[in-house]
């Protein structure tokens, strides 16, 4: 197992190098930079700054400098925040994790329950309605759903705050603060859960349908077990096996932050910060964040792979 883990990790190295080359190349080719787009900087100062941040370097020098930094755990310096990129990511990413974590827990619970029921009653009216709803939520653009939610629940009905993480001006302490944050979380969490839950439900439904048709389920029924035991103990457990690998694929989305939703709800997460970095032409921040997500995606794939080996002996044998 250890050798497998090591081999699998070594395999990611060429991909990581490829990703970093492509990203640095993109950032090298795009025109405009922080210094030139800021009219308050004098000409002399501009040349100085460009020299300092290596904006005039040829592409291979840029790449070598950047990679050396990455290997030391340094993703560069964010010019608009005047802080290292890793500090920025560290500061904002946890706000994103807070939302994404809540979304993940909620959507897994809903998806398992709904998926199991619509599989058990395949082709029933309930199943039809669920199937349609699943497609409906999968087809909504995130920003449109977000805007609709704000319009309905925050502007018209005034049930929830419009955006942000805390109420401006109110400096709550202790539980009042927790409650305040929770209240601000509700709408973005609902929107993101809605967007997320469709695919998952579909996944559990299919996986459950595959299991239900197998012989051991018939055996379980023949033994005279209660239908509830058959479904939840025998079928669901087996249907969960492929789903475990999904957890690996969810790693990047847990940390990536929902760019669009965060910026619409003004939530101080890393995704929103990335969008702001674009207007400021803050290249190191953009580059650092994009690489951070690509890195998590690759790691997520490895984790999914390994988990699959752990839970499914048939794969381990190969």
């Amino acid at each position: 197992m250890t050798t497998q883990v090591i081999r699998r990790l070594l395999q990611t190295i060429p991909t990581l190098i490829g990703v970093s080359i492509v990203l640095v190349l993109i950032f090298h080719l795009i025109p405009g930079n922080f210094v030139d787009s800021n009219p308050t900087i004098s000409k002399e100062r501009a040349t100085e700054l460009k020299e300092m941040y290596g904006l005039n370097d040829p592409v291979h020098i840029k790449y070598i400098k950047w990679t050396q930094g990455v290997l030391k755990g340094d993703l560069g310096y964010s010019i608009s925040h005047k802080q290292p990129v890793t500090t920025i990511i560290d500061r904002y990413v946890w706000n994103s994790v807070l939302i994404a974590g809540a979304v993940m827990v909620l959507s897994w619970i809903i998806a398992i329950i709904v998926g199991v029921f619509s599989a058990v009653r395949q082709h029933s009216f309930f199943d039809g309605v669920i199937t349609f709803l699943v497609f409906a939520v999968m087809s909504l653009p995130s920003f449109f759903l977000g805007l609709l939610a704000i319009k309905l629940f925050a502007v018209d009905m005034r049930i929830f705050p419009i955006g942000g993480m805390t109420t401006t001006g109110a400096n709550y302490e202790g539980w009042a603060h927790v409650w305040d944050v929770l209240e601000h979380m509700i709408l973005p969490v609902i929107v993101l859960t809605a967007l997320n839950v469709g695919g998952l439900t579909r996944y559990f439904r299919t996986s459950m349908l595959d299991v239900i048709k197998q012989d051991f389920i018939r055996t379980a029924r023949a033994k005279g077990l209660k239908e509830r035991t058959v479904i939840f103990k025998h079928a669901l457990r087996n249907a969960m096996i492929p789903a475990i690998t999904l957890l690996g694929f969810e790693i990047p989305s847990l940390f990536a932050g929902a760019m669009i939703t965060e910026s619409i709800f003004n939530w101080p997460g890393i995704g929103g910060v990335f969008l702001d970095a674009i207007t400021a032409r803050d290249y190191f921040l953009m580059l650092g964040y994009t690489f951070f997500i690509a890195f998590l995606t690759i790691i997520g794939n490895v984790v999914a792979d390994l988990m699959y080996r752990v839970v499914d002996p048939r794969v381990r044998m190969k």
Binding site: V19, L23, I30, P31, A256, M286, T290, A294, T297, I298
Partner: peptide, 18 residues
Amino acid sequence: DIIMSIPSLPVLIILGAA
């Protein structure tokens, strides 16, 4: 593999800005 690992929305946003 490389293209699949690169998050497409951020990259599209960057290219759009360019």
